[in-house]
Structure formats: structure tokens, C-alpha cells
């Protein structure tokens, strides 16, 4: 073990906290602003801590802007698309991890390459198909788009997790007389649950924050929080405290989830290329 001097540790600590707080500052500032009156939010010089703390913005955001309607949409869309993705991806990842063929590798890479297609490349047909099928501004349609968009990531993440389950253990179960179904229920699922959980978390985060399809395919009925917040971009008047309150509500749940899943995040985001 290297010996670090206390002085160096203190210097580094101060520096790290300054950098950390600077990066975090916009979020902190937004949260602070959400507790201000609209007047305080706009005042010069800005009020840092000694302003009149109020919850009225939160109350008003709920009352006037159907916040809960959009929050519910965000929940339905992110969890719904994740659930559908799991239904498809678990069997696929299982098959590819435990019964690989010569083509498994190229199949996985091909799946990945679909994720790299820029959404604008298919915006026009998707928009027209949705319009013709009456699926614009529908939750079902958006769930499908988000599901398909994230399916490659879900398959990949599950694949890398399943790969880590030793083959021997599954073979032992087979020797013990377990059928494929029982093997999945009793052995694979319990062992894969941590991996599945972090896959779900990352996917929910990605779907929650997705802001291309949600902005282009929804207006109000199915609009999640991304679209709802975007409606503040043309403020009639100065509603920044309310914007801050709505934004805080929109990012808080996902930030907490993200903080919990940060250990698994790197792996999921890099398709296992960096562990």
C-alpha cells in the first residue's frame, strides 16, 4: 500500500468536492429554485438559501398541469417497454448464452448495430405508420417503439450476465434430472436475478429519459414527462420556479434509481466492453 500524506488527501478532498459540486450545481440550483416564489426565482442578485421557502410551486404544478397524468405515462411507458423487452430478451439471451451456435456472435453484433441506427432515419415512416394506424399519442404505440429501441441493449446485458453463470451448474441441474423449464425456474432465474434487476433499472432509466420518439409521437394523451417539460420551453410569462418544481419531480425518482444502480451502469452502457 502506498502511503498518502494527510495533506495531499485533504487537498484532493477539497478539490474533488469543488468539482463534484460544480457538476452537480445546475441540479442543486434547480431544486433550490423549485422552493422559491416566482419573484425570488427571478430576483437579482440571486437568492441562495435565505429566501422565503415555499411548497406552493409543487402544489400548483399538480393542480394546473396534470403532472400526475404525465408522470403516470412515464411510469407506464418505461416499465411497460422494459417488461415487454424482458419477455423477448430473457429467452433470447438464454438461448444465445447457453446454446451458442456459430452465428451467435454475429447475431449479437447485428442486434447492436440496429441500436446504432439514428432515429431520424426511420422517423418519417414510423410517423406515417402511426398516423395511419391511429397510434399517434397512444401509449401502446410508444411502448412498442421504446421496447424495440432498447431490446438490443436488454438482450446484450442479459447475455453478459447469463454468460457469467457457470455452465457446470446448469449441467449439474441437468444431471440432477431438471427439465429445461425447471432448470430456468430453480437454477437460472434465482442466479440471474441480480443481473435482470440491473438490466431493468438501466432500461427504465433509458426509457424514462428518451426524448426523441416521445417528443415526436406524443402530444398530450400519452405524453410522458419529457414532453410535459418540453412544453415549458415557450413560457408565457416567467414560470421558472414552477418549471423547477416540475423538473425536480420529473427527475427525482429516476435519479434515485440511477444512484442505486450506478455500479452496474458502466457495464450496461458499454455492452460489457468495460467492466
Amino acid at each position: 500500500m502506498a502511503v498518502y500524506s494527510v495533506r495531499r488527501q485533504v487537498t484532493m478532498t477539497i478539490l474533488a468536492w469543488i468539482v463534484g459540486l460544480a457538476i452537480f450545481f445546475p441540479i442543486l440550483w434547480m431544486v433550490l429554485t423549485s422552493f422559491k416564489t416566482e419573484l425570488d426565482a427571478f430576483s437579482t442578485p440571486p437568492q441562495f438559501l435565505f429566501f422565503h421557502w415555499t411548497l406552493e410551486n409543487y402544489a400548483e404544478v399538480q393542480e394546473r398541469s396534470h403532472y400526475f397524468h404525465h408522470a403516470l405515462n412515464s411510469i407506464i411507458l418505461s416499465f411497460g417497454s422494459t417488461l415487454v423487452a424482458l419477455l423477448f430478451a430473457i429467452p433470447a439471451a438464454w438461448g444465445m448464452a447457453f446454446s451458442p451456435t456459430k452465428r451467435t456472435r454475429s447475431t449479437l453484433l447485428w442486434m447492436l448495430s440496429t441500436k446504432m441506427m439514428p432515429p431520424v432515419g426511420v422517423l418519417v415512416p414510423i410517423y406515417l405508420i402511426f398516423r395511419d394506424l391511429g397510434m399517434l399519442d397512444s401509449r401502446f404505440g410508444l411502448i412498442m417503439v421504446l421496447f424495440l429501441g432498447n431490446l438490443p441493449i436488454v438482450v446484450w446485458m442479459l447475455y453478459t450476465y447469463f454468460k457469467e453463470i457457470p455452465r457446470d451448474i446448469l449441467e449439474a441441474a441437468r444431471m440432477d434430472g431438471a427439465t429445461i423449464g425447471k432448470e430456468i425456474i430453480y437454477i437460472l432465474a434465482p442466479m440471474a436475478i441480480p443481473g435482470i434487476a440491473s438490466t431493468v433499472l438501466l432500461n427504465v432509466i433509458l426509457a424514462w429519459n428518451e426524448a426523441f420518439w416521445t417528443l415526436n409521437l406524443t402530444t398530450s394523451e400519452a405524453a410522458p414527462l419529457t414532453t410535459f417539460i418540453a412544453s415549458y420551453s415557450s413560457p408565457e410569462g416567467l414560470f421558472w420556479a414552477k418549471l423547477s418544481a416540475a423538473s425536480t419531480l420529473a427527475i427525482a425518482p429516476i435519479m434515485v434509481l440511477g444512484w442505486f444502480s450506478q455500479k452496474q451502469l458502466v457495464r450496461g452502457l458499454t455492452f460489457g466492453a468495460v467492466k
Partner: peptide
């Protein structure tokens, strides 16, 4: 026949115990 039907049991190099 599959491994289950052969009536054999196996001890693996890694032991392959079910960790959970």
C-alpha cells in the same frame, strides 16, 4: 436419452453447487 434419464450422477471439477 437426455442426462436425466440415464440414472447417473456427476461430481464436477468446479463442484457446480447451486450458490443460492
Amino acid at each position: 436419452e437426455g442426462p436425466a434419464k440415464r440414472g447417473l450422477s456427476m461430481v464436477f471439477q468446479s463442484y457446480a453447487l447451486y450458490p443460492h
